[in-house]
Design a protein around this nucleic acid. Sequence first.
DNA 1: ACTACTGTAACTATTATTGTTACAGTAGTA
DNA 2: TACTACTGTAACAATAATAGTTACAGTAGT
Lengths: 143, 143
Amino acid sequence: MKISSRLAISIHTLLAIKSFHEKYKITSDFLASSINVNPVIIRRIISQLNNAGITEIISPKSGISIRRPLENISVYNLYVAVDCIDQQLFNFHTNPNISCPVGKNIHEVLDGHFNKIQYAFESMLKDIKISTLTNELNDILKF
Amino acid sequence: MKISSRLAISIHTLLAIKSFHEKYKITSDFLASSINVNPVIIRRIISQLNNAGITEIISPKSGISIRRPLENISVYNLYVAVDCIDQQLFNFHTNPNISCPVGKNIHEVLDGHFNKIQYAFESMLKDIKISTLTNELNDILKF
DNA sequence: ACTACTGTAACTATTATTGTTACAGTAGTA
DNA sequence: TACTACTGTAACAATAATAGTTACAGTAGT
């Protein structure tokens, strides 16, 4: 089980747009060369970010731009936008035997714990803003 | 992305063993009927739990038993035993372009955040002991 | 020898991920 | 208007993980 690289790629994408948008026109080919994946992968992710209102393309000639202030975009927003999750983080066997006392109550025992962990996990993703990441990147680049 | 149902099944397995080991002989068929999956699925999971020293089978006739006190078995132990994880929770594009300043430093920016979240996530799994879950199940069953 | 199991191989189906080529559509430009 | 440079997306392939099945050899006790 791994969280799709779409999450890391979408973060990389936003950092690259932020770093280069003044000097270069941001195209899927441009981003693909920094991230080193096929441009179609980038276009698919950008398409998902557009749908989520995170990025936009005004016109092919003007390139991809970020629509919201970076402090209003969290890693969780990207995680949702690029479809890393499917409702429940923890999978569950579908039909526990309800004529067995354990099977009948296993959901009641586990759901609370699983939901609590999922909530905490998602909260941690929410706590990371893209603006924080760009600041950290800039600090590294100063040396 | 979902965490394999092997985790929920292995928890269910331990709760069922704990609940029924005095009245019934615990076999893969017995467990399979409570969990409602094919007995081979159970045998594979039991095999992994045996390797992790969590359960054991003294002999086919005596059935499956739990080897450690339930307060010494955490959900994290099961999570590792049944192979829900592959080192890193977050996947990463393999070859960011190191001649690009963003590509060169993306790991330095993200790794700390990702590792911190993974550590916290695993800590939450460690905090749930099987003994807690059996107590909660027993509380439900009292009604 | 028989019985009741386990352990595991071999196979299938399904799904997700990652990647590729190809091409129609579109917004600006010459 | 034709051209250029892009996007958006379909179609396909490869790989891997999950979940499930049947089959059967091996083994511990009876």
